[in-house]
């Protein structure tokens, strides 16, 4: 999870930081044609999100504005923009990279902390209610197999996931 910063990254500032992050590699290919915005189902219904705008802000180096704002959390990860981008910017992945950086910088929406704690405790992000589990036999379903919680814990500890500071800042 530690991503080393070399000279080039530092020179390129925020966009360099993104480029060196898994998923963010293609950000500087963007030439702002707007295909992503026109493809975006979310941009169609709210002005709070425009993928082109997010990338533009990031390329301009507006780190704080990008990371603390709500826009990056409004991508629905539908990949429509990514399919059509004529510069092969992996837009959805760039947004993942931005979210990863945001979380490392302490900007975590509540629901994501919940996902994380579910994963850490049970190895699943949607908890299974006793009610549904009991009803399985009624529908002729076999008992559920246990989740590999121990393995997950080891993986999370190796990547440092379990050490992320889940600052309760409320929804950005």
């Amino acid at each position: 999870m530690v991503h080393e910063k070399d000279d080039e990254t530092l020179r390129a500032g925020f966009s360099g930081e993104i480029k060196h992050r898994l998923g963010g590699e293609t950000i500087t290919l963007c030439y702002q044609c707007g295909t992503c915005a026109a493809s975006c189902p979310v941009a169609k219904v709210t002005e709070k999100f425009n993928p082109r705008g997010v990338i533009k802000l990031a390329l301009l180096g507006e780190r704080q504005e990008v990371l603390s704002g709500s826009a990056i959390w409004l991508c629905s990860s539908c990949y429509n923009c990514q399919e059509r981008c004529p510069q092969k910017v992996e837009i959805a992945d760039v947004i993942y990279a931005l979210r990863n950086i945001a979380i490392m910088s302490g900007h975590t929406p509540n629901i994501y902390s919940e996902f994380a704690s579910g994963l850490m405790k049970e190895g699943r992000i949607v908890p299974i209610s006793k009610f549904v589990e009991k009803k399985r036999t009624d529908y002729g379903l076999p008992p559920l197999k246990s989740a590999g919680v121990e393995a997950i814990k080891k993986i999370l500890s190796t990547t440092g996931f379990d050490k992320i500071q889940w600052k309760k800042e409320g929804t950005p």
Partner: peptide, 28 residues
Amino acid sequence: VDLDNMTCCAPPPLQSIDLETSLSIAAY
């Protein structure tokens, strides 16, 4: 065939937290 010890697949919400971790969980 049901196998033991499967976990969450690490979908977009987890990818949003950390891509590398998510890839590792999927690979697991």
